[in-house]
Design a protein around this nucleic acid. Structure first.
Lengths: 117, 117
DNA sequence: TCGTTAATTAACCAACGCGTTAAACATAGG
DNA sequence: CCTATGTTTAACGCGTTGGTTAATTAACGA
């Protein structure tokens, strides 16, 4: 498994089944069986997708009786968006204009920097 | 390899070395050797990271003489951000307030939906 | 043409990801 | 208790990823 948090988040999002699960959870919390219903894969497979999402912090889980219900935790999505946001000036033209404006006003130009490894 | 575009983008971003390469490319285009310099891994390894980034559409490559220079292509980052944007209302409180406001005004509530698979 | 430099491809290996089925665990409830 | 239901864990297969070193390709330049 990936060691750093951001890698875990992106890796979790790299699977279409997991993204679909998140989309479902956006409508409200759901049990494992409910989440598995739209898919043609086994329950253990779903169970492990949920573990990946949980370890990435994208869902939180609670138990009542024999049901484990998952609910969306958006925090990591905010983190991932924040990382990408640093590149926004490369595609968002209005941001480009803002960027140019700020650069005219202030002295330092900031460029995105990633974690060194 | 992942089949859909979004999965390829997220998978490409899931590696810290590749994110660092993107950060370096945000400062301007660079050759393979220049990109490899900060890392303690071999040139072939870097070469394959670049192939992953290229296939995800995150970089474009050009050649002059024996140098292959890479430059950032932000489009996929915009795509990925657009996907996450649908969940913004779950963490952004000002969006929450806007969302609540819109829900009060209009009848249908929209929830994010993912690609079915 | 020959050597040097830049980069990729080939061949290999260990670890991981994602699926399976079968077994085990946890809780409710007759 | 025993059984049914919901979920996870175990054990396995198989393709992919991410690294290595060695060989190959590509282009320049004396």
């Amino acid at each position: 498994m990936a060691t750093d948090r951001l890698s875990m988040i992106f890796a979790a999002l790299a699977d279409p089944t997991r993204r679909a699960i998140l989309a479902r959870l956006a409508e409200g919390e759901a049990t494992v069986s409910e989440l598995a219903e739209p898919f043609s894969i086994s329950l253990p497979a779903i169970s492990r997708h949920l573990k990946v999402l949980e370890q990435a912090g994208l869902i939180t889980r609670s138990r009542t009786a024999q049901w484990r219900s998952s609910s969306l935790n958006p925090e990591p999505l905010r983190e991932a968006t924040a990382w990408m946001e640093r590149y926004r000036r490369f595609w968002d033209t209005s941001f480009d204009r803002l960027d140019a404006h700020l650069r005219r006003l202030q002295q330092p130009q900031s460029t995105p920097d990633d974690e060194q490894q």
